[in-house]
Structure formats: C-alpha cells, structure tokens
Write a protein that binds this DNA or RNA. Structure first.
Lengths: 240, 240
DNA sequence: TGGTGCAACTGACATAAGTCATGTTTTGCA
DNA sequence: TGCAAAACATGACTTATGTCAGTTGCACCA
C-alpha cells in the first residue's frame, strides 16, 4: 500500500508532479488544490492545425500546454489573421477569459501535435477566491504580459517589416531554440511568419530573401538559421 | 465635535469620499485602508505638457487622476513617440510597475492641467497582500486592459491609417464626449493624434483633410466634429 | 510513379505611407 | 498689439507595402 502511494506520488500525469507547474503561477497552488485539479483535469491531444478554441467561444476552463506549440490569433476587420502570441510548454491558455467571464478574444490553433490538459474553470475560480498567493502570482504574470503587449503595439505602429521580421527571428531563436544544425527549432510556414510580423506573405518571403542575400540568415526549405545575430539586433534598433 | 466629524466625513479630499473611487478597483478597498491611504496621499498639480513620470523611472507609488487628461507613451527604437493610452479622471497610473516592482515602461505626460493624487506604493502592496477582493478587482481590470491591448496590436498591424484614424475619432467621441457645439471635447494637437494613430503628422493632417472633404467630419482650428458617425464606423470595418 | 495540390517564390505594378521643403495660420507672450 | 515660435497645412517626391498573376518545387497518395 505504501509502495502504491509512492507510485501515485511519482506519477507525472498528476498535476502535483507536473513539471509545467514549476514555471508559472501554478507553483503558488497548494497541495490540496493541485490534487483536486488533477482529479478533474482531462488530458487532450490536438493534431497540427486543429483548433483548441475559437475567438468568441465561452470557455469552460483553461488549457495547460504540456507539449507542442500553439498560435493565438485573431481575424482583423479586414479579414486578415494576426498572430498575437505563440504559446508553448507550460503556458496557460484561456486564463484571461475565465478571469473576466467573457468570451475569448483570440483563437488558439495547434502548430504542432499537442498534448494539453484541460482544467475546469471552477478550480481557477476557487483558487482565485481562496488562495491570495495564487491570485498575486496570476496578477504579476498578467502585468508582465501587458507590458509585452504595450511594446508590441509600439513595434507594430512604428517599425518596418524588416525590423519586425528581425525581431520575430530573434524571438523564435531565444524562445524556442535551435536544432542540432543551428536551425530554428520551430518551423513556421511563411504564411504564419507573415501573420506574426503583420504583413503579406509575399513581402515576408521577399524580406527573408533579402536577409539571406545580406548574409543575415541561411534558409533550407522552410528551415531558417540565424547567421548574424548582431546585425539582426542592430536592425531592430536603428534603421538600415 | 460630532459636527466636526461629519465635516471630515464629507470632505471630498478624503479618499473615502473621492468620487474616483466609484469607478475602479479602489471600490474594493476597506474603510481602514482608505483612511490610511488618505492620510499619506499627496495631491499634486501638473501643468499641461509636464511629465508625471518618464519611461524607466522607478515609481514610489501610483498616481490617481482626479482631473485632466494624460497620455501614456513610449519612444520606439526608431525615435518616434507612440501613445499607447489616454488616461482620464479615475484612472490609476503606474499600477503595473508597482505590481511587478519594475521600472515603468511608459511615460505619462499631462495633456491638460491635471490634479493627481500620489499614493505611496506600500498601500497598494499592503492591500494586495491583505485584501483578496482588491487583488481580484485589480486582476479583472488588468485582464480587460490586456484584451484591449491585443485588439490594438491587431489594429496596428492590419489596418490602414484611414481606418485607425476613424477608430481614434470614435474613441475620442465615446470616451471624452463633446462640447456644447458637438465638437470633440478633447483637443489634441495634430501631432498627438498622429502619435496615437501611429503615423507621421503630415499624413495625419492629410487624412483629416480627406475626411473633411468626404463630409465625415468638420474641423475648426484644432477642433474636430464628427458628422457621419455611421460611415466612419463602416470605414473601420470593411475597406473603402 | 506520375499527377495533384499546396507552399514557396518571383515579377510587375498599384497603392499607402513617409519625408522634405515651404507656405500659412494660430498662439503665446513681451 | 505686434512679433516670434509653434502648429497647421499642402505640394512634390521617395520608399515601403500590398496585390495580382504566374512559375517552381516538393510532398503526398491513388
């Protein structure tokens, strides 16, 4: 019986032991909260291209990413998609909508096969109500997201496509890393990169081509490798 | 003595009685918290054009706007100013920096003569620590700001200057209202409007001129009056 | 294994936005 | 009240971005 308990304690499928928890506000949750959460959570698989949820949905809970990468995007009034954020292992999706009890303002779509835990919103609501440490952690996290969002607004409004692409490449490098050959690990389609940068696919491709000709990057199929990190960073700042 | 107490209770300079409190997370504060806050707050005047704080400052507290309007802006790497938000009566400035204990990422500048209460950050920190209702109210507020920020990102990335200007005019109308003649109450300089829209002053002026020629607005000096609200709204959505 | 279809790419052109120069009006103030 | 500075406005031009039309190349599968 003791050994059974030990096994349960080590079960990585339990929220209590989930590595994801190390990374975010969930670390502020108490043992009993995690246990309750784990007992009612539901692990789901999403295939590449499948939607986790769509803009306007009312979410019955939040999604905790265990594996894979998802894009959070929105269709503008002009009908074009804009990717607002890429969410990877450890990110919680749908938290904001649950906090404000509103419909989601973004769609989430799997960019790779994903493994995601769905946690009914009652758990989040209860913890927000009962556990001030958790609420504070969520608040801090949201405050820092807001800061990032402000920076993005300024970038979108004031920077050229060249600068924004340079920024996205650096972002992909620092956040998702590279494979053994030094190519960006995350292989987005040209069209998805364009949707992150906020431009048309053709111009995105042209700009990538220019970067290649200028020796800033190397491409191989859809794979991209950053060669001149320094110049790329200079580009982001001053013009050129 | 009783009458003295009554007078103090009715004193509108006390946080407990401040109308501003009705509007925001401060309504979740308890009597004792408000009293402590009121006893150490400091009311300051800012003249039009004066900075409340600058990007990179470490704030010793938050600013609560009692009167007047302030712009929150940031200088992009390219050296141009982008206005991220206009804050008016009842808004709390600097809250995010206090929550994350970081430097501010935005500058705040008075666009009109302002009256602002400065509240030392210890009060906010204490209430975040002791008063879950307050923390939850702040969290909800921040979540809704984040949603607005996401929408702004999409607009900046995907909409034309014409569309963004139309949006700003509607925003100024619904949020700050009009004077007795129906002109927008808030008289921003052309350059400030350009910094909100995210474009050059010349293009902003040209676009305003076009709107005037198309019968969407009337201008008189720096005053602007919206004539065709409906067309302006259509412009924001579909192209034209 | 040879289509079929989609993603990646390129060229040519149209439109949007930015910049520089310059004139005009308003505003603040000595 | 009159002058200087700042804000507003417009023209002419350059550059950035978007769009359409088409070609190439690669992966998938009947």
């Amino acid at each position: 019986m003791a050994s059974f308990e030990n096994m349960e304690n080590r079960d990585l499928n339990r929220c209590e032991n989930c590595i994801i928890r190390q990374m975010h506000s969930f670390r502020a949750l108490r043992k009993d909260e995690l246990k309750a959460m784990s007992d009612s959570k539901e692990t789901r698989q999403f295939k590449k291209g499948e939607p986790l949820f769509k803009e306007g949905d009312r979410l019955a809970g939040v999604f905790c990413v265990r594996n894979g990468i998802s894009k959070l995007s929105k269709i503008s009034d002009n009908g074009k998609e804009q990717i607002v954020k890429l969410a990877t292992k450890g990110e919680i999706l749908g938290q904001r909508s649950v906090i404000t009890s509103e419909q989601t303002n973004l769609s989430a779509t799997a960019l790779e096969d994903m493994e995601v835990c769905f946690i009914p919103k009652s758990h989040i609501e209860n913890s927000l109500h009962d556990n001030p440490a958790f609420t504070n952690a969520v608040l801090k996290h949201m405050a820092s997201e807001l800061k990032i969002a402000d920076d993005t607004i300024v970038n979108m409004a004031q920077k050229t496509v060249r600068q924004r692409l340079a920024e996205v490449l650096i972002y992909l490098h620092t956040n998702f890393g590279t494979d053994e050959d030094g190519y960006l690990y995350l292989q987005l389609s040209r069209s998805d990169i364009a949707d992150v940068v906020g431009t048309a696919t053709e111009l995105l491709i042209r700009t990538l081509t220019n970067f290649r000709k200028e020796g800033l990057i190397i491409t191989s199929g859809k794979r991209i490798k950053i060669i001149d990190n320094k110049l790329l960073n200079q580009l982001i700042q001053g013009h050129s």
